[in-house]
Protein backbone atom coordinates (compact mmCIF):
# COMPACT_ATOMS: atom_id res chain seq x y z
CA UNK A 1 0.00 0.00 0.00
CA UNK A 2 1.06 3.52 -0.71
CA UNK A 3 0.99 5.31 2.65
CA UNK A 4 2.05 8.86 3.42
CA UNK A 5 5.06 8.91 5.76
CA UNK A 6 5.38 11.17 8.81
CA UNK A 7 8.55 11.91 10.75
CA UNK A 8 7.65 8.81 12.81
CA UNK A 9 6.51 6.10 10.44
CA UNK A 10 3.16 6.06 8.69
CA UNK A 11 1.23 9.33 8.80
CA UNK A 12 -1.78 8.81 11.08
CA UNK A 13 -3.28 12.30 11.10
CA UNK A 14 -5.84 13.18 8.50
CA UNK A 15 -7.52 16.54 7.93
CA UNK A 16 -10.85 16.43 6.14
CA UNK A 17 -10.41 19.51 3.96
CA UNK A 18 -13.97 19.58 2.68
CA UNK A 19 -15.24 19.99 6.23
CA UNK A 20 -12.52 22.34 7.47
CA UNK A 21 -13.32 25.97 8.39
CA UNK A 22 -9.63 27.01 8.04
CA UNK A 23 -9.60 28.67 11.49
CA UNK A 24 -6.00 27.84 12.41
CA UNK A 25 -6.60 26.44 15.91
CA UNK A 26 -4.67 23.28 14.90
CA UNK A 27 -1.78 25.30 13.50
CA UNK A 28 -1.54 27.21 16.79
CA UNK A 29 -1.08 24.07 18.89
CA UNK A 30 1.18 22.17 16.48
CA UNK A 31 4.59 21.91 18.19
CA UNK A 32 6.31 20.88 14.94
CA UNK A 33 5.09 23.62 12.56
CA UNK A 34 3.70 20.74 10.49
CA UNK A 35 0.48 22.28 9.18
CA UNK A 36 0.22 24.58 6.18
CA UNK A 37 -2.89 26.78 6.14
CA UNK A 38 -3.88 29.01 3.24
CA UNK A 39 -7.10 30.96 2.70
CA UNK A 40 -9.19 27.89 1.93
CA UNK A 41 -6.62 25.09 1.82
CA UNK A 42 -4.96 23.06 4.55
CA UNK A 43 -2.40 20.26 4.52
CA UNK A 44 -0.16 18.33 6.88
CA UNK A 45 3.54 18.69 6.10
CA UNK A 46 4.24 14.95 6.26
CA UNK A 47 7.92 14.91 7.10
CA UNK A 48 7.44 17.24 10.09
CA UNK A 49 4.41 15.53 11.63
CA UNK A 50 5.06 13.27 14.64
CA UNK A 51 1.44 11.97 14.91
CA UNK A 52 1.21 13.65 18.35
CA UNK A 53 -2.56 14.24 17.90
CA UNK A 54 -2.68 17.70 19.51
CA UNK A 55 -4.36 19.05 16.38
CA UNK A 56 -6.97 16.30 16.57
CA UNK A 57 -7.91 17.33 20.13
CA UNK A 58 -7.79 21.07 19.47
CA UNK A 59 -10.02 21.09 16.37
CA UNK A 60 -13.24 22.80 17.49
CA UNK A 61 -15.37 21.07 14.87
CA UNK A 62 -13.90 17.56 14.75
CA UNK A 63 -12.51 17.56 11.23
CA UNK A 64 -9.04 16.22 12.06
CA UNK A 65 -8.98 12.46 12.54
CA UNK A 66 -6.51 10.00 14.00
CA UNK A 67 -6.42 7.24 11.39
CA UNK A 68 -4.61 4.28 12.94
CA UNK A 69 -4.47 2.43 9.62
CA UNK A 70 -2.38 5.24 8.15
CA UNK A 71 -3.24 7.85 5.56
CA UNK A 72 -3.06 6.73 1.94
CA UNK A 73 -1.33 8.77 -0.69
CA UNK A 74 -3.94 10.11 -3.00
CA UNK A 75 -3.81 13.01 -5.38
CA UNK A 76 -7.38 13.89 -4.47
CA UNK A 77 -6.40 14.89 -0.92
CA UNK A 78 -3.60 17.16 -2.04
CA UNK A 79 -5.17 20.60 -1.81
CA UNK A 80 -1.92 22.56 -1.76
Amino acid sequence: MNYRMSKKGKLLIEILPDKCDFCGCCVGVCPEDAIELKEVAIEIIDDRCTNCSKCVWACPIDVIKFNKEGVLKSPATSYI
Binding site: G24, C25, V27, G28, C30, D33, L37, W57, A58, P60
Partner: peptide, 26 residues
Protein backbone atom coordinates in the same frame (compact mmCIF):
# COMPACT_ATOMS: atom_id res chain seq x y z
CA UNK B 1 -0.45 36.50 11.66
CA UNK B 2 -2.91 35.57 14.38
CA UNK B 3 -3.49 32.36 16.30
CA UNK B 4 -2.21 30.33 13.31
CA UNK B 5 1.09 32.20 13.48
CA UNK B 6 4.08 30.50 11.91
CA UNK B 7 6.20 33.48 10.93
CA UNK B 8 7.83 33.83 14.37
CA UNK B 9 8.81 30.16 14.34
CA UNK B 10 10.71 30.65 11.10
CA UNK B 11 12.82 33.24 12.94
CA UNK B 12 13.56 30.69 15.68
CA UNK B 13 11.02 31.92 18.27
CA UNK B 14 9.03 29.37 20.26
CA UNK B 15 5.47 30.48 19.59
CA UNK B 16 3.12 27.51 19.51
CA UNK B 17 0.40 27.44 22.17
CA UNK B 18 0.43 24.64 24.71
CA UNK B 19 -2.72 22.61 24.23
CA UNK B 20 -4.00 23.28 27.76
CA UNK B 21 -3.83 27.02 27.08
CA UNK B 22 -5.61 26.97 23.74
CA UNK B 23 -9.32 27.67 23.95
CA UNK B 24 -11.02 25.73 21.19
CA UNK B 25 -14.00 27.83 20.12
CA UNK B 26 -17.08 27.70 17.96
Amino acid sequence: DGVESRVGRWAGLETHTHIKNMESCV
